[in-house]
Amino acid sequence: MSEKDAPVELCLEVLRRLEKAGVLRGLVLIGSWCAYFYPDYFGGKTKLSALRTRDIDFLIPTPSKIKGELRVAELLADLGFISDRRGEGYVRLSHPELIIDFLVAERGRGTDKPYPVKALGIKAQPLRFVSFLSDDTVEVRSRGLILILPHPVNFGLQKLIVSGRRADRDKGAKDRLQAIEVLRAVIERGEGEEIRRKYRKLPAGWRKGILAGVRLADADDLKALLA
């Protein structure tokens, strides 16, 4: 993929600024942008689908380790980002080429109340199933940055779980496509056993969702691995 790709350039600039402000290490990059950076984790040979939306999602593990009192909206204002306050009260930073969302894991029975993160000057959106993404993370060195991403196995399995819960079938199909690609890259790396090990530790409902996703994607290799 060309580095002249405008959303990629903007994404890298945002990441550089977050790193310079000392907060990047306290954030886990999740969502479809992970597929852009995973090839660096897999050794650069793996090719993953470039199909992604503009959203770049940052998961803030709670309690947050980020110190200070940064105003992220101000940090990125000169790039043209505007704050988009959603009905529920959380804020996303929008730009025609990139939309930044800050998320936290919804705990227990859950609440849709926004979660204030004073250190970033934002209110994050609580979401279900994302805690699994920060349970096991990897450091990825890419374009002079050190990024924290979910372990690819966690990424793939979580995408399969949420794919079946989407109201929009097409969005579910995109999740499955990405999940299967990343999990196959893990298998190619000779770490298929890690997929099986993590899968077996999951609650029965999650395992059922994963298997349904694998079936819908006609991924017989993964079906056999998880059997």
């Binding site: 199909l51 939306t53 929009d168 079938r169 097409d170 969005k171 199909a173 995109k174």
Partner: peptide
């Protein structure tokens, strides 16, 4: 009709 990931992305965007 089978699900279409490209269409999903376009509608969201």
């Amino acid at each position: 009709m089978p699900a279409n990931p490209v269409k999903g992305v376009l509608i969201e965007e």
